[in-house]
Amino acid sequence: MDVVAQLQTLKDKYKSTEVEKAIPVDFDLRNLVAFDTNPVDHALLRSSPDTYLKNLAREGAQLLVNQIFGLPTETAQEGVFAKLPDATTQIPRAKPIPKEKALTRWENFAKTKGIQKRKTSRMVYDEGVGDYKPRWGYKGANQTTDDWLLEVPDNADPMEDQYEKRREEKKERVEKNKKQQRRNAEEASATAAGRNPREARKAEIQKKIVESKGSTASLGRFDAQLRNEDKIKIKRGKRKFEPATVDASIEKEGAMKVAKKVLKGEDGKVLNITKAVKQVHQKGGLRNVDMEEGKKKKRRTK
């Protein structure tokens, strides 16, 4: 028997996997989706919707399966996996793209110098104990105050407490590290706001000086002078006093102004936020709202 004929009989034994469509179907295999843009047969859909829709779905599924099973595969323990191509449909993200983290001073320095991070082991061998200890942290190898005996150096004061000294040194190191962290955070926030971190720091200090100068009764007149302090302008608000005797109507007006402000808010405008949001939203967002609308009405009533 001819091989071609043999194959044909084998094929005829089963139903075909081929589907004919007037307009070729689009696929986005990463999303496992097929877009069949062929027009729907309205008469068939009305007369027997279930069979028509099932047939339509079968054809679409067959085409999609043909595509997926035609992709390159990889075999793993869990089964055979098809490797999907990149997506072609544009779908919005759930959250914005993550912002790049600002580099710390050390990271910046390491980058310019080309210093790369090296992987160090978490545990280090402690010869004194004869066992492995964590490099840092609880019961770590760097916990120097845990030693039961400390040697007093030759040139040191014999009465000095070496344990106390180490504790103080560690405290200082921690403080220094915290300070650097704070500085890095401040610099990062200044750069994120588009300002020069040095200038931002300068402005901050100047502001603090002005504040502290103004906080004494003499407005800093008898304080010790800082270097270049005369370049810093200290603003001093002048107090204004109303005359003791005024017209009763002026006094009344002022009182009424305060009362109105308390009762109705600034300038007598009352904004019902819930109502405003609703109105804007029902029109389909801010872009569809006529901002002049309210103003015109007001003029007409006048």
Binding site: V33, P39, V40
Partner: peptide, 8 residues
């Protein structure tokens, strides 16, 4: 799931 969007 597989998805099919059909119709013009």
């Amino acid at each position: 799931p597989l998805l099919v969007f059909s119709g013009d």
